[in-house]
Design a protein around this nucleic acid. Sequence first.
DNA 1: ACCGTAGCGGAGTCGGCGCTCCGTTTCCAG
DNA 2: CTGGAAACGGAGCGCCGACTCCGCTACGGT
Lengths: 184, 184
Amino acid sequence: MRADAIANRRRVLAAAREVFAEQGVEASTEEIARRAGVGAGTVFRHFPTKRDLVERALVEHLDELAGQARAAAASDDPVVALRGLVAEMAEHAPTKIAMAGHLLADGGLEGSARAAAERMGAVTAEVLARAQATGRIRRDVGVAEIHFLVRGIAQAQAFLPVGPEVRRRAVEVLLDGLRVAPRP
Amino acid sequence: MRADAIANRRRVLAAAREVFAEQGVEASTEEIARRAGVGAGTVFRHFPTKRDLVERALVEHLDELAGQARAAAASDDPVVALRGLVAEMAEHAPTKIAMAGHLLADGGLEGSARAAAERMGAVTAEVLARAQATGRIRRDVGVAEIHFLVRGIAQAQAFLPVGPEVRRRAVEVLLDGLRVAPRP
DNA sequence: ACCGTAGCGGAGTCGGCGCTCCGTTTCCAG
DNA sequence: CTGGAAACGGAGCGCCGACTCCGCTACGGT
């Protein structure tokens, strides 16, 4: 592969992530081409369908998130790690969610996207298990519930942007709900 | 207005709600016309733009929800009423959310849709205030946080359908988080 | 430096959807 | 019953976005 082709591919992917974050997955391919400084043809040569482009962008997003989560998992207090993971996901997930939604609406997650999602799930599972081992986090929730709740928070902001305090308090409520609850 | 026109209008609106619930707001107007057993022209005579159709469907949805919420508010225990409201919203809101999202992406909520949303907010505020008055629900959350969290749960299911137990547990976590929390 | 070819650009094609137009049908007042 | 207005149906228009095609550009091995 020629050097300029590699560079262009990278620029297209970067532009796509930018545009998807700003305008959602509905953004036109031409806008991405413009942002990347290439022609539409070039975009389609590197990513034959829009789905391929979204999929690749999602994989990069997920892997970055998983990386951050692994870093958070290194924290001494597993409960703090869980809090950090949830807060991080809640803040940065909206774009990712939109992309996953687009793929799901178009044949379901497949191949690399599914693999990346599973890597992410594995990290979450590890952090959650360690937090539960301290006895301070309720044991009747699993990765599914965590992802569900976080996906919710992320999604909710994507639709109707909301002040950072509201989001913070919402995350707080979620985290309190995850503690081992006193049954009144 | 002629009798058949009134009947057709109702059939179109009913079909629209059905189709939006099944396929999302992206569904084509023609599908709605087919389902209603009328021509495309008829749909557009009653609802000059797709936006009008979505808006009208959303208002009906919101008012039904508000009605259910008012019924729940009549419960003896205000905390039970809050639980009922949250559970109800979480289960039936996905379609509503999608419609609101579509309107927002196209100029924001306006007129009747905004009014209906405010009616819904008023009911939520009342239920929440009464629950907080018992001293069992934390006072640092407002309607914004409640709607935010519920919107999240609704949204999350719309994207990636999830078993009813997962949703139930998620709602449970949310509700536990809303209690006055012991600070460990 | 040279030239074969990988790669590029962007005008053009195709399909889908919102919306319009008008000849035809249906309702109902007199 | 009947005339005229109200309402209907669905072919057609215009636009937009995904994707293709091909003449041109410029990279890089020799």
